[in-house]
């Protein structure tokens, strides 16, 4: 049986001044799935995430989250349900890693209260999951790009939300940590029935981890469906203009995209 949709997006459009970035999008997202959003640079992926998280309001159309318009929720209420790992990772004036991860608990801590035992439990668990516990007293402005990005992922894990939105969350990470973050995300979906919505540039990662993929082009949806149906050479050619071959990887049985390199 099909769950009622987590997100019900109907005919949304969004424009910066006169430039239309999102053009009449409609789709539903369901709980407990790993969604990938792929598409060329500037096709509106980040704007779509901002709309889903309620950071921006669509110029027309509606976005319903768990049955209510996403912009009808209080910010703090939304922050207990949706977490964001942003593309840019401004870590502010030299806070320690632990302080930054604790900021993930902000929506749960009352204005003048101190963090509770439960808050610290989430903070420590998040740091251990991402493997940055030993960096906890380091200042974030002294960390490498990859370490900062892992701290930000840990902050979002500490936020303990049902929905996690990743905006190219692994862009600064090497292959080991990229896989680590995707494995953590995959477990959140499979074991905890959480939902991941991730903008991913690497088509092989998208093919390997996502249940369903949204192919975006020029502010609209070109294809949206289960990975095995939409990750095809035709779609990739239409969206990116790149010739590929999609096969099963004999090593892990995942879909694998091979590129025709130009000389």
């Amino acid at each position: 049986m099909i769950n009622p949709p987590l997100y019900d997006v109907t005919n949304i459009s969004f424009a910066y001044d006169s430039a239309l970035v999102i053009n009449d999008l409609s789709f539903n997202l369901h709980k407990g799935k790993f969604y990938g959003i792929v598409g060329p640079n500037g096709c509106g992926k980040t704007t779509l995430l901002d709309l889903l998280i309620g950071n921006r309001a669509p110029k027309s159309g509606s976005i319903s989250f768990m049955g209510n318009p996403v912009n009808s929720y209080r910010r703090s209420n939304l922050a207990r349900r949706i977490g964001l790992v942003p593309q840019e990772f401004n870590t502010g004036f030299g806070y320690t890693v632990e302080e930054v991860v604790l900021m993930g608990r902000h929506p749960y801590i009352k204005r003048f209260a101190s963090p509770s035992t439960e808050d610290w439990h989430h903070v420590n668990r998040a740091m251990k999951t991402i493997g940055i516990h030993e960096l906890k007293d380091r200042y974030t402005n002294e960390l490498s790009g990859g370490q900062k990005q892992r701290a930000v992922v840990a902050r979002t894990l500490a936020q303990d939300t049902d929905v996690l939105i990743f905006d190219e969350a692994t862009s600064s990470l090497d292959v080991k940590y990229t896989l680590q973050i995707f494995n953590v995300a995959g477990k959140l979906v499979q074991q905890d029935n959480r939902t991941i919505i991730a903008v991913i540039h690497n088509l092989n990662l998208a093919a390997a981890y996502c249940d369903e993929i949204v192919f975006m082009k020029d502010g609209g949806i070109h294809q949206f469906g289960p990975t095995e149906q939409v990750m095809t050479p035709e779609t990739i050619l239409n969206v990116f203009g790149v010739t590929t071959e999609v096969t099963r990887d004999p090593y892990n049985d995942k879909y694998q995209v091979s590129f025709q390199y130009l000389d």
Binding site: R75, L84, E88, M103
Partner: peptide, 21 residues
């Protein structure tokens, strides 16, 4: 009164919005 919000805002507005500020 807004001290902690101001701390979170140092992460940038996208992050602070997403953290409920």
């Amino acid at each position: 009164y807004y001290g902690r919000d101001l701390n979170i805002m140092s992460l940038g507005s996208r992050s602070s919005d997403a953290l409920g500020v």
